[in-house]
């Protein structure tokens, strides 16, 4: 039977396959910012991205609480050379996704939600 890490990698690979070249990296991350498994470019520090993803989601949840707008469902950062998305994967983990600039965001959001759901069941 595949290990937890292998199962998560399979989910991430499926996400990358289903979205063509839109997703350039992804990681499953604990709320403490530790990466469970990832597919990231060699020049990207997975550890740092994991910590940043957890921080972004933590702060977003805090904002949601302060504004009483409910639970955070996703965070999307749009930069001039790409996008970064973080979404909950169950109660204890997150899915961080790095996208290229002109990615089909609608498709990726749908696929990322499925991937996050799958990861939550593995974690």
């Amino acid at each position: 039977m595949a290990s937890r890490q292998e199962q998560i990698i399979a989910v991430i690979d499926q996400l990358m396959t289903n979205t063509g070249t839109d997703v350039v990296g992804a990681a499953a991350v604990g709320l403490d910012g530790i990466s469970f498994a990832s597919r990231m470019a060699a020049d990207v520090s997975t550890e740092r991205v994991a910590a940043v993803a957890a921080t972004i989601m933590g702060v977003t949840r805090r904002v949601g609480g302060e504004l009483r707008i409910g639970a955070a469902e996703e965070v999307i950062i749009k930069a001039n050379k790409g996008l970064f998305m973080v979404l909950p994967a169950g109660d204890q983990s997150l899915l961080a996704v790095n996208l290229r600039q002109d990615a089909n965001l609608g498709l990726v959001r749908l696929e990322a939600r499925d991937a996050a759901r799958a990861i939550s069941q593995i974690v």
Partner: peptide, 17 residues
């Protein structure tokens, strides 16, 4: 920890990771 929602994450951030 209150800001980021997790004490262990807060410790990692303060450690400069």
């Amino acid at each position: 920890a209150e800001m980021v929602g997790n004490e262990r994450l807060a410790r990692r951030l303060l450690a400069g990771e």
